[in-house]
Design a binder for these strands. Structure first.
Lengths: 154, 154
DNA sequence: CTAAGTGCAAAAATTTTGCAAACTA
DNA sequence: TAGTTTGCAAAATTTTTGCACTTAG
């Protein structure tokens, strides 16, 4: 699963998680989650808020922050930072996560998976006696689109 | 070179860089750089400021931010974020950078290098037609110390 | 002397928190 | 109805910026 792909059963999983903690499945929470899973990509709170408010006027930023944290706790979402001064969110599959290629020119984020990183992670963790939990690999570079734009500009 | 090791010639390199841009080598700038390179590790601004002020009372946080940015521009330092809500800095060698093992229990940061990551980076970049620039790999886990503390507590 | 840098405080920007009102179950 | 959640605004954090004063060259 990539970040652009919502887990088919996110609503059931989210609902179950909320209920398991004694929480309540409210309209704002569902609205934020629906927006997040329908828009795909790696939105930040600002971006989410625009779309959320177009569907349900009056929802506050605090609710978006709180709901995204809830989704993280539920294991459906992961919070990421790409050095922009704010957080972005992405879907988090039960089978693990994806790594990123980030264009330093236009900011585009492409996901990828590569088995070698898993092996590397195990090897390094063992070397330093760490109990491995998770990793994050971001590769920064120039995407094909920005390369051709640069070429055509001269 | 690891983050705990200052480049022997940082002062010459910093001075040259500043001069090359028409800037001035001031006492506060040298003080911040000296503190950073002498303390090692991955300090944040808060941490730097304490040490900086013990050597040169009256230096402001803005100067620390500005000097660290200057050091980044000079290629001597890199800014990193480990999801704590603030930035940390580390030395940046000309030959490239190091990756990190981060203890999710005590926050300790251990650096490592592994050739496989370089190959992986090249392979993935080529697969997606990116012009590769740099990467960042963080592996999160529990460090040996925290493992034994957990064991001895029960 | 002149342009650049400093420290301070104010401003920005992001995220968290307190609380009365609204809502879920 | 009881207890949770919401939206708002205020607070907390981290980082940036404006400006009068200081300083390097």
């Amino acid at each position: 699963m990539t970040a652009g792909t919502a887990p088919a059963n996110w609503k059931a999983r989210f609902t179950n998680y909320i209920r398991s903690t004694g929480g309540r499945v409210t309209r704002p929470r569902l609205c934020v989650a629906e927006v997040f899973f329908s828009m795909g990509g790696h939105p930040g709170v600002e971006e989410l808020l625009v779309e959320v408010r177009s569907r349900h006027k009056g929802i506050g930023a605090a609710t978006v922050y709180r709901t995204m944290k809830l989704l993280c706790d539920a294991g459906l979402v992961a919070s990421r930072q790409f050095g922009e001064g704010f957080s972005r969110y992405e879907t988090e599959g039960p089978e693990g996560h994806h790594d990123h290629l980030i264009c330093t020119s236009c900011g585009k984020i492409v996901e990828f998976e590569d088995e070698a990183i898993e092996e590397l992670q195990v090897r390094v963790s063992q070397r330093y006696d760490f109990i491995m939990q998770r990793h994050r690999l971001d590769i920064f570079g120039i995407c094909p689109t920005c390369q051709s734009e640069k070429r055509s500009r001269g």
